[in-house]
């Protein structure tokens, strides 16, 4: 049996260690970039979209944010809204129950682009041929055509995801893609304006 007493690390020490890392510009844990292309300047905002995965891909996507992989140092981050995202990271074999939600999410994107993460998202994986999923060619056209990158694996390891993300062009994001004629024309329809919902004086 392990008999060593458990010591609580002091908060001050953790902070000092973290600060030292910042000052000498040496990360505490993180791995070197698995692909040289990741060193290029880049800004990719990813919105995750679960289409019925087993949660394995989510675990590995979450692992990308830990200090070891630290995906944000490559200019890639997970975004909370599809409206702010450059690309959707789709996991799972595309269940019928989520079709409508997935379509609405894609519609809310500035530019419909999808990365299919994991074998399920690519071709249905172990769930292929079930009545409840529309994997592969049976998926709606707008989803199928929007896929620009596929990451195989069940689930793909974080390093594999990073290597694949390195293939994304660095100029994926930005106003040039989202708004071809920037600044966009500012048209607020009267019925959509928030004023119309206010009681009149």
């Amino acid at each position: 049996m392990d008999k060593a007493p458990v010591k609580k690390p002091s908060l001050i020490w953790l902070l000092v260690r973290r600060l030292l890392g910042v000052i000498v510009r040496k990360p505490l844990y993180s791995i070197p970039p698995p692909d040289a292309r990741l060193d290029q300047p880049r800004s990719v905002f990813i919105r995750h979209l679960d289409c019925g995965s087993c949660n394995g891909c989510e675990l590995e996507l979450n692992a990308l944010s830990n200090p070891i992989y630290d995906i944000e140092r490559f200019g890639i981050r997970f975004e909370a809204s599809p409206r702010h995202a450059d690309v959707l990271a789709m996991t799972g074999p595309f269940t019928r129950n989520l079709t409508e939600a997935a379509r609405l999410t894609l519609e809310a994107m500035p530019e419909p682009l999808i990365i299919a993460i994991g074998d399920c998202a690519m071709n249905g994986g172990v769930f292929r041929n079930s009545y409840a999923v529309t994997a592969g060619d049976a998926r709606p056209d707008e989803i199928r055509q929007a896929i620009i990158l596929e990451v195989p694996g069940c689930p793909p390891a974080p390093v594999d995801i990073l290597k694949k993300l390195a293939e994304l062009p660095p100029d994926l994001s930005g106003a040039a893609v989202a708004f071809p004629s920037y600044p966009p024309p500012l048209v607020i329809e009267r019925s959509m304006s928030w004023r119309s919902t206010m009681p009149s004086r």
Binding site: D50, G52, S53, G92, P93, T95, R96, N97, L98, A101, V126, F127, N129, S130, Y131, A132, V133
Partner: peptide, 11 residues
């Protein structure tokens, strides 16, 4: 719930 129903038992 049920959005992620994949028909596992039938599979």
């Amino acid at each position: 719930l049920g959005y992620k129903h994949k028909g596992i038992e039938k599979l």
